[in-house]
Simulated scan of single mutants.
Amino acid sequence: MKKISILILAIVFISCKSEAQQDEKTTKEYKVQKTESEWKAELTDLEYRVLRKADTERPFSSPLNDVKEPGVFVCAACGNELYETEHKFDSGTGWPSFDRAVENSLAFSSDRKLGYERSELLCGDCGGHLGHIFDDGPQETTGKRHCINGAALEFRPKDKS
């Protein structure tokens, strides 16, 4: 009985690692390609940890939570336009939240770091980790909540001319 249990456990662990589970993060060729040392030299420590190592900033720590003026939020690593202020909302979670992204600006992956699968949002141009998407956003719009690390973004106000 013990041998059968060990065999079953071994099969389960082996079957969990397959080529079918390769995700966009590891297989997609991004327009912006840099070495890890180049990213480290260009980004702040927090930006590097969030964008390149998929870390999460502390909730309520981003000054971008309070931005309400018209403009666009771009990737802090490559400048790709990701979100517009008009689609931003206060989710109460402590991270900048949006109900949709600029069309064709994102890439998607799966994240199992917490023991269950979450949909990870990546910059479509450089593959930087932005945050995650959830189904608890405003129902009157998309019903989606793009929960984004402020450290992954820079804000560019709308040109007033």
Rank of each mutant, 00 (worst) to 15 (best):
E47H: 06
E29K: 00
E38D: 06
D45W: 00
V32F: 03
G137W: 09
T142P: 14
D55V: 09
I14C: 09
F89G: 05
Y48E: 11
G94P: 15
Q33W: 00
R49C: 10
P138D: 09
G71P: 14
F73S: 11
E81C: 07
T35S: 13
V102I: 02
S119F: 06
P63L: 00
H87I: 04
P138M: 15
S161Y: 02
S110W: 11
F73Y: 15
E24L: 11
K158Y: 08
E120Y: 09
C147S: 06
K17L: 15
E29M: 01
L64K: 03
T141K: 00
K160Q: 13
K144S: 03
T56I: 14
C123E: 13
G137Q: 09
E19L: 15
D99I: 12
T142H: 09
T35K: 01
S91A: 04
S62A: 12
Y30P: 04
D136E: 14
S15I: 03
A101V: 07
K28Y: 05
L51H: 01
T44Q: 10
T26E: 15
F73G: 12
F60C: 14
V32E: 05
R156A: 03
E86K: 06
V32R: 03
E42Y: 02
D135M: 12
K113V: 10
L9Y: 00
Y30A: 12
F134D: 11
L9I: 03
E38Y: 00
V74K: 01
D23W: 05
H129Y: 10
E117V: 12
F73T: 02
L43P: 05
F13L: 04
E86P: 03
T85D: 15
D45P: 02
T85Y: 00
I148F: 05
E69I: 04
D135I: 00
W39L: 15
S37C: 11
E84Y: 08
T44A: 13
E81H: 03
K17W: 04
P157I: 08
E36W: 06
D111A: 15
T93F: 05
L64F: 09
H146C: 11
S119W: 02
K40R: 09
P59R: 01
S62D: 14
G137A: 15
G71H: 12
C126L: 12
E24A: 14
S105G: 07
I6Y: 00
G137S: 12
D111H: 02
D55P: 07
F89S: 05
R145G: 06
T85L: 10
S15G: 11
F155N: 09
T26N: 15
K160L: 14
P63S: 01
H146G: 08
R52N: 10
S119L: 14
C75A: 05
G79D: 10
G137Y: 06
R49D: 15
T27V: 14
V67T: 04
A41Y: 04
E117A: 14
R156T: 04
E81I: 01
F155R: 00
K28E: 08
D23V: 11
C75Y: 00
F134E: 15
H146V: 05
E154K: 08
G115K: 03
C75H: 04
W39V: 11
N65R: 06
S18T: 11
K34D: 07
